[in-house]
């Protein structure tokens, strides 16, 4: 039995005019760290809200720990931990008051599950008498994670936990998730950052309410069908325009300081690259063959679904 399972879940807003989630299906296995990767507005939060039983799906079925999200919502609420994307703890209560409150409403105490949150709680302990609203962004996230964990949930739902958090805190946060995974908690996490995808066991790429692909990050990368090249020149914008209009180029997009491009004919790419250089004669031109990332896969999948 998977920890979380979705079958053809659909949800529309504004009386059907806005399609937030369109027939989404995927499973999260027990003890897995599963990433839901997609840009803002892709439907990540809607999926989270359906799974945490605060929103009813229009169509489809979903289960959490084998329990139906519509019928058994009461039992699910006892078994899951949810950390909404927006900081949702009481800003006027202190760190320890927040934690105590969420422990008591789950009929448990901080002591009982202290070992679970110890690593995280130790970091915010010096501020335990500070109102939650006066914590820094990273600290708030740690507190929210503590509150979501305090009742030892079977499944943890983290909606964009690292959005708006600095790079160091993000790294720490993912290390914490790895440790939680070792404790046997199934984790569903969403993020708009593609670089975080490789930290998950499996990921689902989502765009405009549609699932593009569900697989391990390695598989998604290795399934990238064509050799990928990175190129740059002095006049970056001219190069982008030239390459995009060239009939031999299949796709071309800016990626950091380089352009990433693939060719329609995947057989003799090196030769094609030389031809491009001779054709446009860009100044300070350099190119290399590169390894695709999740983002490359995402962009490719996105372009395939949107003709």
């Amino acid at each position: 039995m998977p920890a979380v399972s979705l079958q053809h879940i659909s949800k529309t807003y504004n009386k059907g005019t806005v399609k937030a989630v369109n027939s989404v299906s995927f499973d999260v296995n027990k003890g897995e760290l599963f990433g839901l990767i997609g840009p803002d507005g892709a439907g990540k939060t809607t999926i989270f809200r359906i799974l945490t039983t605060v929103l009813l799906p229009d169509q489809g079925e979903a289960t959490v720990e084998g329990l139906d999200v519509v019928k058994d919502f009461k039992t699910i609420r006892r078994k899951v931990g949810y950390m909404p994307g927006k900081f949702s703890l009481y800003q006027d209560l202190t760190v320890s008051e927040n934690l105590t409150f969420f422990a008591t409403i789950f009929k448990t105490s901080i002591k009982e599950n202290y070992d679970l949150i110890k690593d995280i709680y130790d970091q915010i302990k010096p501020f335990s008498d500070r109102p939650a609203g006066k914590l820094s962004g990273g600290m708030k996230q740690k507190l929210a994670l503590c509150c979501a964990l305090i009742h030892k949930p079977d499944v943890l739902f983290l909606d964009e936990p690292t959005t708006g958090v600095d790079a160091v805190s993000r790294k720490e946060f993912w290390e914490m998730l790895q440790r939680l995974k070792q404790q046997g908690i199934s984790i569903l996490v969403s993020t708009p950052y593609m670089d975080e995808a490789s930290l998950c066991d499996r990921i689902a790429l989502i765009q405009n309410g549609n699932i593009l692909s569900v697989d391990t990050p390695q598989n998604i990368i290795s399934n990238f069908p064509a050799p990928l090249y990175a190129a740059k020149a002095k006049n970056f914008y001219q190069l982008l325009k030239d390459f995009r209009s060239d009939p031999a180029v299949e796709s071309c997009y800016a990626f950091g300081e380089y352009l990433h491009l693939t060719f329609k004919d995947a057989g003799n790419c090196d030769q094609l690259m030389q031809q491009l250089r001779d054709k446009y004669q860009p100044a300070e031109f350099e190119y290399k063959k590169t390894v695709p990332t999740i983002e490359d896969s995402f962009i490719r999948l996105m372009q395939q679904t949107i003709p």
């Binding site: 609420r77 909404p84 900081f87 409403i105």
Partner: peptide, 13 residues
Amino acid sequence: EIGTIEQINVTPI
């Protein structure tokens, strides 16, 4: 408005 009800909703309250 602050969104705390979102967190409360996913509890046995």
